[in-house]
């Protein structure tokens, strides 16, 4: 291969915290390019792919949110090693579904979920609340195609970008019926594109797993939901679902 330069594999490690491990699983998805993809990586530490564990990685993918004191320590140790720390997936970027926990009292939850057991549990935090994040790849789960594109950019040293515009663009490109026309609330107009509008194409409203698009117009969005006489409860449930719009509206 001659491209005027040679490329080095990324020394990468992947760690899971409070999550379902669905984003890590995506790394093994998309079989057509899987071997090419793995060829770009020198996997130093990744429980789901290999039992070998080394601690000389440059890039750390962090999956999941932080909800226990021991997780904080583990994460801080990873931060000390990693040159680039990536918040990988919605839980890591925004807290994710786990954040629903923060609406209840911790004691009540512990008793309900782990009756009769002693558990140490805290409020759910996104990764950036605990350590500095260098790169965020949102999505519940992450979109493997996008991950591949970003990995190729990292290997070749080109700029890593996410779409700045909202999901509606990708939804319209598939000639979908707008879910607002069907009387539903969809977070597409305020959510960052890049998932190829998979939910709305399947006629399910966007719940904003990829977080806010750049410079969203939240006021106009709240207004249009109101003007259409759609349920305020439904709206608030959707906005809170992944905790991705925290601070952008009055809950």
């Amino acid at each position: 291969m001659h491209k005027g330069t040679t490329f080095e594999k990324l020394k990468i490690a992947s760690f899971d915290f409070t999550c379902c491990e669905g984003c890590q699983l995506q790394l093994a998805n998309r079989e057509s390019t899987l071997t090419d993809f793995l060829d770009l990586l020198d996997i130093r530490n990744f429980r789901e792919i290999s039992s070998e564990q080394h601690n000389d990685y440059d890039i750390a993918l962090i999956e999941g949110s932080i909800s226990r004191p021991d997780e904080v320590e583990r994460l801080q140790a990873i931060r000390r090693q990693a040159k680039t720390l990536v918040a990988f997936g919605t839980c890591a970027c925004f807290g994710g579904v786990n954040s629903l926990k923060n609406r209840f009292s911790l004691n009540e939850l512990a008793v309900e979920v782990y009756p009769g057991m002693e558990v140490e549990t805290g409020l759910v935090k996104k990764i950036s609340e605990v350590v500095k994040v260098d790169l965020s790849i949102p999505g519940c789960p992450v979109n493997k195609e996008e991950v591949e594109r970003i990995v190729v950019s990292l290997v070749t040293g080109s700029q890593v970008t996410l779409p700045k515009y909202p999901v509606c663009i990708e939804c319209k490109a598939q000639i979908n019926t707008c879910l607002f026309d069907l009387g539903e609330i969809c977070l597409g107009p305020i959510t960052r594109a890049g998932c190829n509008a998979v939910c709305t194409t399947g006629k399910t409203p966007c719940l904003g797993c990829r977080g806010p698009a750049e410079e969203i117009n939240m006021a106009a969005f709240l207004e249009l939901v109101k003007e259409r006489g759609l349920s305020e409860n439904d709206l608030r449930e959707k906005l809170a679902f992944y905790n991705a719009f925290e601070g952008l509206y009055q809950p």
Partner: peptide, 12 residues
């Protein structure tokens, strides 16, 4: 002030 910058208008 009302525009969502969603690009829908240009797409359709």
């Amino acid at each position: 002030n009302k525009c969502l910058n969603c690009g829908t208008c240009a797409m359709v």
